[in-house]
Nucleic acid binder design. Structure first.
Lengths: 242, 242
DNA sequence: GCCGATTTGTCCGTATGTATC
DNA sequence: CGATACATACGGACAAATCGG
């Protein structure tokens, strides 16, 4: 639950920025002002602002203030930012989607797989392949590996719905950190079999390792995306010669 | 200069993790311990740890400790993380590289360009295209637009060396925030003309808007990457139903 | 160029809450 | 239950950068 005070302030500021109350290139009220507005300490205000900066909404300028960098209408629709499930991002964009499970089995990690995915060899795993279909077009092939001992009781029906929802709401386990790596690769015959690639001969690949609340790697996933409808957004800050 | 105490501690911890002093899945010393080790307040230790978490080195588990998520040998060589210049990342990977300037001119932003890049219409801009050649292969085509009033005195020679270096060391202006967007697109005839694409018909595209220390947009860049040698890494954390 | 007011950046010490063991 | 560990919040101090007079 986001009951933390700094988070409430962050959301409030973000909303005001998105609504244009603080337009592009304007300055937020000073930290001291916000401190009295929200009735909290300066540190708390600073944490809220840090969140804005981290997500590209603003930029702090020492001695001057905090300048808004968010510009209305320059955001993309179907983008990948935090950890968001397919179902969630589809809902956010009002898209009609279906999922087809094309593979569902239990395997054991061998040495090659272990080296590639980060699991220990011998770990029992669910291997699940799912085809994501948006508006009738097969656009994403998800290849998941879940640790079978951490995600017991999986079924095809759950896989067709939402595995994350099952993990969080039924198993009461929490997804916390995800390390991702984005590349572009040649499409294989397999990709062509499942996906409506058109004349593209490449795909966007996202590989990720996901860790639960105990720091155990619970999942490895490779998402093979049709190049259209794929975007990845990011904000970076430059630090003194690293 | 990274004189900040929290940054020194961050670097020290990161180095110890990379060296294997704190191996994968182990716990860091507790915050209280680190407080006395480094002779600083707990807040400062926490800021250092926050840096590790943000960059995927570790994960905090309340009531237990801070677990290391970094695994040796699972990092990629030529990846894009913070704001790093072409020269810097090439040097970091011990690659022999050259840059060829294929376009160098001054233009004025029209409405279409303004909408796409975020500059105001009428802004005078340097338009610079540069071909990045690694080990004899043309792999990246960089299309830069710099605000001419903020980056005066550019020459072809500077563009062949490093524009960022010129901006930072000669103009004493600071690059601070960069908003990026990664997509995959069809290769055009132009791409084929400049890049050694082989049989790929797609490229990885990174578009970015860069802001200087005053929050002025100083640059818009589109980098067109050969799919090989391209990787983008990221760490995300999941927050309660956003 | 200097000075003082304003604003962000860093750091400290303390208190309290919450989760783990 | 108590000890330990991380999470949040407060208030205060000083540094560094900006800006206007």
């Amino acid at each position: 639950m986001p009951h933390a005070k700094f988070d409430t302030i962050y959301r409030d500021l973000r909303e005001k920025i998105e609504d244009g109350d603080y337009p592009f290139q304007s300055f937020l009220p000073s930290e001291n002002t916000l401190t009295s507005v929200y009735g909290c300490s300066r540190n708390t205000v600073r944490r809220a602002i840090a969140g804005l900066i981290e997500r590209g909404y603003a930029q702090a300028i020492r001695g001057k203030g905090v300048r808004v960098l968010y510009r209305k209408g320059q955001q993309s629709a179907f983008s990948i930012g935090g950890i968001e499930t397919f179902k969630e991002s589809a809902a956010r964009n009002h898209l009609h989607t279906t999922t087809r499970v094309v593979r569902f089995e239990m395997i054991e990690a061998d040495d090659a797989l272990a080296a590639r995915t980060g699991f220990r060899a011998g770990t029992p795993l669910w291997r699940i392949w799912r085809l994501r279909i948006l508006d009738g077009r097969a656009l994403i092939l998800d290849k998941n590996l879940f640790r079978a001992d951490l995600v017991p009781g999986l079924t095809r029906a759950i896989a067709e719905d939402s595995i994350y929802q099952y993990i969080e709401q039924t198993l009461h386990r929490t997804i916390q950190t995800s390390k991702r790596r984005m590349t572009v690769e040649h499409a294989t015959r397999e990709d062509a079999k499942y996906l409506d690639l058109g004349d593209y001969n490449c795909l966007a690949i996202i590989e990720s390792q996901t860790f639960d609340e105990n720091g155990s790697q619970i999942e490895w996933t490779q998402s093979r995306h049709h190049p259209e409808r794929f975007a990845f957004e990011d904000t970076a800050t430059r630090r003194p010669h690293a």
